[in-house]
Simulated scan of single mutants.
Amino acid sequence: MPELPEVETTRRGVAPYAEGRVVRDLVVREGRLRWPVPAALPDLIRGQKIDRIERRAKYLLFHTRVGTLLVHLGMSGSLRVLQGVPPQPMKHDHVDVVLADGNLLRYNDPRRFGCFLWLSPGEDHPLLSSLGPEPLSDEFCGELLFRRSRGRNGPVKSFIMDGHVVVGVGNIYANEALFLSGIRPDRAAGRISAARYEQLANNIKQVLTSAITQGGTTLRDFVGGDGKPGYFAQQLYVYGRAGLPCKACGALLREQRLGQRATVYCVTCQR
């Protein structure tokens, strides 16, 4: 599914075409998403100017004067900019945000696990209220991970993927950051030192920043707001490489399931 770098790539691709533009219409062809699209949503946003587009975790927030459109891409969704005369909608093109300048944002989601919801000004939505800090913010650091991990016996990989601890560290990037930090993903979170957590926090920032710069990771469905794929997959050290040689030491990479997610690691490089 699209993870934080893919969502940030989408935000950066869409923002130049949507910020400062007025929404002429919202066309909902299929409203049965993970949460039903509110019937009143087109009337709420029609005629409103999109002041700015913000990302919070894996959510996109389209801020207007009268409220905020909350968008999630789900497991297989994409939001693309279409200029000029748009092509006829395909089977899974569920929502169009039609802009007054003639361009539109088209939401495609084969599995319908995304959402289009509305937040009134000042509303604290349950989807956002309990989220942890952003991983690229100053608030996120090794000391925070060390403090929140005390007494936890679960795997460190599951710990850093917990959105209450820190948002947006999805499966791909958790695998990669743990490899760069030399930490086995199944090691108990509460048994890792402050120094190693500082290294892990820095590597999480590095991996996510690199992925954003390169447009995300193309795995099956993802494309950015401009319709182009991401390219970070070319630099993956462990994710998706089970049974292949480690790029650092040559040992064969192993795979196990942690939290029902594929987890790949090097028994030599990670302790």
Rank of each mutant, 00 (worst) to 15 (best):
W35Q: 07
V207M: 05
R147P: 04
R257H: 08
L236K: 07
S76P: 13
G13A: 05
L73S: 00
S120D: 14
N108A: 15
E3G: 02
Y59K: 11
E6D: 04
T213R: 13
W118V: 03
I212K: 02
P155A: 15
R12A: 12
P155E: 14
S130K: 11
L82Q: 15
K58P: 09
M161G: 10
L253T: 01
P87K: 07
G84I: 03
K157H: 07
N103S: 13
V14W: 00
P5R: 01
A100R: 05
R112L: 11
Y17I: 13
I53M: 12
G243I: 04
A195Q: 15
Y17H: 15
L41M: 08
P126W: 09
R34I: 11
A248L: 10
G67I: 02
A18D: 04
N175K: 08
E19M: 12
L26M: 15
C246P: 04
H63Q: 14
V28G: 11
M75L: 13
A100C: 03
L258Y: 06
L219H: 00
G31W: 07
R24H: 01
L70P: 05
V14S: 05
P121D: 05
R21I: 01
V166C: 11
Q256K: 14
L61A: 05
N203K: 08
M161W: 12
K157Y: 09
G84Q: 02
M90Q: 13
R184S: 15
K228Q: 15
L61D: 09
L219P: 00
M75Q: 09
A194F: 06
I45G: 00
Y17C: 13
R241E: 08
T9I: 10
D226Q: 14
D162T: 12
A188D: 05
H164R: 15
L219V: 05
Y265K: 03
L178S: 01
F116Q: 07
S149Q: 12
V169E: 07
Q206T: 10
G151L: 02
